[in-house]
Structure formats: C-alpha cells, structure tokens
Design a protein around this nucleic acid. Structure first.
Lengths: 226, 226
DNA sequence: CCTGTTTGTGAACTGAGTGTGAAGCGCCGG
DNA sequence: CCGGCGCTTCACACTCAGTTCACAAACAGG
C-alpha cells in the first residue's frame, strides 16, 4: 500500500501512534511542494491533515491537493472543536474530519470507512471485469472506456456472464437464468445472442466469451489456466 | 426542507436539542414500516439513526433504507465508542457516523458536510442539469434561459428525473415516486407524460430523456461516466 | 354552473429487437 | 481422409415495447 500523506512534519505523537497501530504507512511533509516532490509513483493513497495547528497553511495544502489533475482522495482533516463552525463548505477540500483529541480507534474507523468508500465506489453499482464495466444503475456498458450500445437481452446476458467470470454455463442454464424460468426456446437463441455480443465487444475483446465445446459458454479466463 | 428521518422514537433529548438548534425538521419512527408510511411525498431528506441502543434493529433499518429503489441519503449513524470496530463495511449502509456522546456542534457540522456533498444543502431550491434549470420555490422551469410552460405533473416528473441524472427508472418506480400511489394499470400514463415533456423541451433537448428499452427512462448522462 | 385546461386511458401504429430454421464451417474421432 | 457433430453465421419473420393519437374524465377558476 502506498503511504498516506501526513501534515505537518513532525506529526503529534498521538497521530503517529494511531497510524502505526492501524498499520498505515505514512510520510510527513511540511510544505505543498514537498508533498509533490515526495509523492510515490502511484500517488499518495490518501492524506491526513492536522488543521488545529496552523489552519491557514493546512487549508491551503488541502486546496492544493484537491486542485490537481487527479484530486487527492480520501482526505481526512483533524480539527479542534472550535474550528467546526468555520469548516469551509464552499470548496470541496476534505472528505471527513475528526475532532481533536480523537478517541482511540475513531481515526482508524473513519479512515477505514473512507477507503472502503473510495475503493468499492459507494455510488454506482458496478460489475467490472478487466476492460469491461457495467453500470447497473444506468444500464450502461463500456469496454476500454468506450460505451457499448447493447440491447436489453444482450445487456442481461453480459451482466449474468460477467458477474460469474470463469464459470461455464450450459445453454439451458443461460436460458433459464437470463431469459427466465422454463423458457421454451431453442438453444440457437443463446448462440445468436453470444454472437451479437461478441460482435459488439469488438474483435479485440470477442474472446472474453469462450466457447466450451459440448458444454456451453464461459466468460473471462478460467481460474485453472496457467 | 423535507424532514429528517430519526430513529428511534422518542430520540434522546441531546439529539432533539441538537437538531432543533440547527434548525433541521425531523420525524422519529420506531419501525421500518413506519418509516415507509410516514415518508413525505418528496422523500426523507436524510436520516439519523441511533445505533447504540438496539444495534441489530438500527442496522436492519439502515439496510432497509438503502435497499429501496431510491436509496435514502445521507444517512448518519450515532454509535457508542465500543461499536466502532464492528462497523460493517461490507455493505454500504451509512455515509458518516458520530461518536456518542457527541460534542455540541459536531453533529451539525457533519450533517452540513453530508448535505453539502449530496448537493442539496447549499441551494435546495434549484435543480440544475446542463441547460435545464428548475426553481423549486417558484415552480418555474427554463431551458437555455427560455421559460418552459409545464403543467404540474410534467414539472414533478421532470423534477424527479433531473434530480437523479443518469439513473434509470422503471415506469412502476416513476408512478410510485412521482404520482405517489400504487397505480392500477396505466403504464402508458408515464409514456404520454414523457412524450409531452419531450415536446416541450424542444427538438434540441428532447434527447435529455432517454428511453431504455424494456426497462424504463433515464434523464441525461448519455455519455459514459464511471 | 359553465368553460378551458390538465390528466388518464384505450387503441392504432411503428420499428427495433428477438427467435428460428437452414446453410456454412471447423474440429475431432475413426 | 472422411464423416459427423456442434458451433457459427445468415437472412427473415414476427413479436412486443414504445410512440402517437384521439377522446373522455377530472379538475380548477371564474
């Protein structure tokens, strides 16, 4: 895991102790330019900024970190009780704050929550597999960032397959799970939809859907290959 | 402003005091079904759930509130210090939490931050999306600066759709959320209103409302965004 | 009570989407 | 090398979801 950016340097012992206890790697800086210089290749994984020492400098740093091409996130602010009513809400400079002196475990819980939200993406419900992304809320699909124009059945089929990557499904199972219980359809129906899906996925990604001869179809790599 | 949902009923005096002091309207409930029954037409504006009394029931309520067609947001959890390490992060059931006993002002600051992030707190009287502006106070609508002459139902439908851009809604959901009662039969009703809306939006902007075949309708966000 | 507007509904219309049979092709076993 | 089985591809027909229309019911305002 990439380190957390911590401000200022040196951080107060209580913060150091909390971060060490929770196992977060971190690196403290004093200035905005230092934050830029010492940034790891993969970027800071987040930031903890203490704002009850020098509020002006702290908020300036937050602003700088957020104004970059790739805004630093999540950003946790540590503030004193008296600063609460001054919290700038016009700009989006922080994600969560923690009151000083913080309770043991509170900072950890908040960071955990922030990382979870940042990672699992609380907002849209997504199905992702490699270059493929399905947004279940908007019924949109994209591969390599390019939107796919799928029909309803194509979308449902791809959704089902891609949410069980690696697993082989017979035509009968696909018919019953995607088309619905006891569907009186020929097996060719599945073949044709698979074909249309492959066509829309493009030549490059058509092989995301594998044919398993005499059995059915499988999406993505088998777990046992290699 | 629509009231906040508060659980349980009656809430502790400290919470009542804090909410009153900050000027949030609120309504307390004891059960999940009560929360559903007493929900205002425009939905709860958020929720404050006390989880250090009966945690099981509290989290069950949160889960229920999040699993609806339109997840309730923002959702604030009030917990005791001992509950911090049990915070369920596998499900997305809350947006922020506050440690009991909370400092005066902390709950207010957190709610303010949540509302700001949800995009409501600052200017709840306007809904904007691209060239479209709805003034909720005056019941006026305009596109490209030109006023739209909408009827009541058209306005309500457009308001609902445009305040959740990108998300697909089925006719059933639209009927229950916009018309507000269980509907007997007329899914065509939605179609016709969509058609009238598109007509009034003008040829240029009719495509703001997108048809998702076999599913429902989606407002805006024709471009792919993660 | 009358009048114009808004809203809901059944019905015709249209076309995208879907299913199907048949032909084509390639793999594999004999 | 041959034959057959199973997957792919194709073209076409048909279904059904969505649009549109016309009209009636409900409603509001004078």
């Amino acid at each position: 895991m990439e380190p957390l950016l911590v401000y200022p340097d040196p951080p107060p012992p209580a913060l150091v102790q909390a971060l060490e206890l929770s196992g977060y790697p971190w690196k403290a800086v004093t200035t905005s330019s230092q934050a830029q210089q010492q940034e790891p290749d993969d970027g800071w994984s987040g930031a903890v900024v203490i704002a009850d020492g020098d509020p002006e400098a702290a908020f300036a740093l937050c602003r700088a970190l957020r104004k970059r091409d790739l805004p630093l996130e999540p950003l946790m602010l540590l503030i004193g009780p008296s600063q609460m009513r001054d919290l700038e809400l016009r700009e989006d400079v922080f994600d969560d704050f923690c009151l000083q002196p913080f309770q043991p475990g509170e900072l950890d819980a908040r960071l955990k929550h922030l990382f979870w939200r940042a990672g699992r993406g609380t907002r849209p419900e997504l199905v992702e597999y490699g270059p493929l992304v399905l947004n279940l809320e908007t019924y949109q699909a994209a591969i390599d960032g390019n939107p796919l124009d799928l029909t309803y059945m194509e979308y449902e089929l791809l959704k089902f397959l891609s949410s069980h990557p690696g697993k082989v499904f017979t035509r009968e199972v696909l018919l019953s799970r995607v088309w619905g219980y006891e569907y009186y359809g020929g097996a060719r129906t599945v073949d044709v939809h698979i074909r249309r899906l492959r066509a829309k996925l493009g030549e490059e990604h058509a092989n995301l859907i594998h044919t398993v001869r005499s059995v059915g179809y499988r999406f993505g790599q088998s777990r046992w290959t290699i």
